[in-house]
Design a protein around this nucleic acid. Sequence first.
DNA 1: CTGATTGCAAAACGTTTGCACGTTG
DNA 2: CAACGTGCAAACGTTTTGCAATCAG
Lengths: 145, 145
Amino acid sequence: MHTVEEIIARLSSQGLRVTDQRKTLAKLFVQEQGYLSPKDVYEYMGKIYSGLSFDTVYRNLRVMEELGVLEQIMFEDGVKFKLHCREEQHHHHLICLQCGKTYPIKHCPMDQTAVPQQFKVVKHKFEVFGYCASCVREEEADALS
Amino acid sequence: MHTVEEIIARLSSQGLRVTDQRKTLAKLFVQEQGYLSPKDVYEYMGKIYSGLSFDTVYRNLRVMEELGVLEQIMFEDGVKFKLHCREEQHHHHLICLQCGKTYPIKHCPMDQTAVPQQFKVVKHKFEVFGYCASCVREEEADALS
DNA sequence: CTGATTGCAAAACGTTTGCACGTTG
DNA sequence: CAACGTGCAAACGTTTTGCAATCAG
């Protein structure tokens, strides 16, 4: 799920149409290794397709999510999407609050977590938020000026 | 922040009015040791106050949050509130997907997590979801019937 | 060609706001 | 009685839906 070609192949293997807009959407998420809000996507796509409508963006985000191409998570300020991690092994993420890019953390806290027997665990969430190297640098530059 | 009286005291110490509705809201969250959506709260309160309006519920949830009485988090299906943990030490939660109740986890995964030096960590989220003992039992009972 | 995809308009949500009236301290 | 809280109606932003026109395979 890391290349535009793979995504397109997956689309057509499901009998879905490969439209220009969907190709662009795939390209956007492949380039951008991070979370994007529907609005981010709409603004980006809008520059390319005049007369683009918000509902098509939503529909395509949904399609991609159902295909397993994208994954969705809730932030404080709303839903965001990113390319689904195709990595074999379970992992978590560092997430940059500025640019939305993510970096893998191999360590999974569930190994060390004692859970009462009575509690039936279904899933867990572990995310670390902060600022990545380049966003920290920008911030410092801004502070100086 | 564990009793209705403490919450009321905090309200009036801030020059805010102690209304019936706010007392009921406090009682609700003190009893319920878990997450409630604004809708949950509205439905509960609506049974008591006919003509209750949604915006008042929101306003009071907000007031309580600003007082530090409640805390808010985002779930897949929207915002929810619960009594703010007054515990001294940092901890995380087991959260029941059925009833919304929470149970503390002392272990904090950040201790074991290696983060690249360049990444400036601001906060983290660690939550374990599943079903608590009583909800598991109900589920099993349902399965049998 | 046939069914999938798109834009448009409108609806459906959840949440917030302004206002006049009622209530608390 | 002054300030704060409430209900109502209406605004708002986000997400979804129905429909007719368009496009991909």
